[in-house]
Write a protein that binds this DNA or RNA. Structure first.
Lengths: 170, 170
DNA sequence: TCCAGTTATCTTGACGTCAAGATAAAAAGG
DNA sequence: CCTTTTTATCTTGACGTCAAGATAACTGGA
């Protein structure tokens, strides 16, 4: 009997005509994501980052040398709009963690690259981030993880596999 | 091989020292929640609401007659800060969907109640919302739901059961 | 060559959120 | 009674996000 069960009990009392079974899944998913996001933010914050800035730096880092991608490629990896990406890049550039260079092949765009400071920072934070994920997932019993991941993958596929996401270009 | 698998493959190539298994779970969870939130927002938007305003109206509705709770009780149910709740209530009050009445028992607080318009609206939207949840959960195969829910409940319990959340008071 | 359509990025305006602090009233202790 | 502490709500300032539109540059066909 958790908080979500209490919510469902209220609905069943007030609106017995509704089948609120799925609402339990949605409610727990939302609350779990909120808790996990808060847990991850602790590490970001400890290094002066936010989820938004970590997201960009990590995407550049894992892309491999020379740690440079176009804003479009970053948008493709991160599921945010162009306006959001512009804002993220502005802040990271002001913080000296990335640099925008002109794209010699396309005068419309630019290339976003990690600075030395940006590389050093993300290299350090990624380790702490992964350790933090191990800490947070500990609450999910090992014997349930396989089935949980299978459900997660199947459900997500219903949203992402319809239109095979094209690999973002550099 | 989905987008999250591609991300993990990049990390394994760039940072083979890291165990990024949990990152797959976190990544899919985040993306799934984003897709589901977007799917739910369609219905909210069709009725002139947002997730934030639906949240408040639904909490008041399922509380039962007289559909009135204090801001503190609403905060307890919805996991947002007091500043956020003030902002939500301001907008809903301006839209004529709720009314703040003075609390005769406590001069510091107030009581938030659904107006007639607010009740009529949420009564209609809740039905569409539940139907929408049934639509969105269809992508999760039925035979995986039980195990998925079990994992969800167990993991969430790790965050919410430590400090038994006290039932919000009216 | 030149123009119409497309693409890449940025700008603007509006929301929603939080942290931290302000204000006011109730409760507790002497 | 007062004074102190606690509680309830609101205010402020800063972020992060999106939708819609603006700007600039590339592209392909006439």
């Amino acid at each position: 009997m958790d908080q979500v069960d209490r919510i469902l009990a209220q609905w069943r009392s007030e609106r017995p005509d509704l089948d609120v079974g799925p609402m339990g899944t949605f409610g727990r998913l939302k609350r779990l994501c909120d808790h996990l996001a808060a847990g991850l933010a602790e590490v970001y914050k400890a290094h002066g980052l936010s989820a938004a800035s970590f997201d960009v730096l990590a995407t550049l880092r894992r892309a491999g040398a020379p740690y440079a991608l176009s804003p479009s490629a970053l948008i493709g990896w991160t599921m945010v709009t162009s306006g959001t990406m512009t804002n993220r890049l502005d802040r990271l550039e002001a913080a000296g963690l990335i640099a925008r260079r002109t794209n010699p092949e396309d005068g419309r765009g630019c290339v976003v690259a990690l600075t030395e400071a940006g590389f050093a920072l993300i290299e350090q934070v990624v380790g702490a981030h992964v350790a933090n994920q191990h800490r947070l997932i500990a609450a999910l019993p090992e014997d349930l993880r396989g089935a949980f991941d299978a459900g997660l993958r199947a459900w997500l596929a219903g949203f992402e596999d319809e239109m095979p996401r094209q690999a973002p270009r550099p």
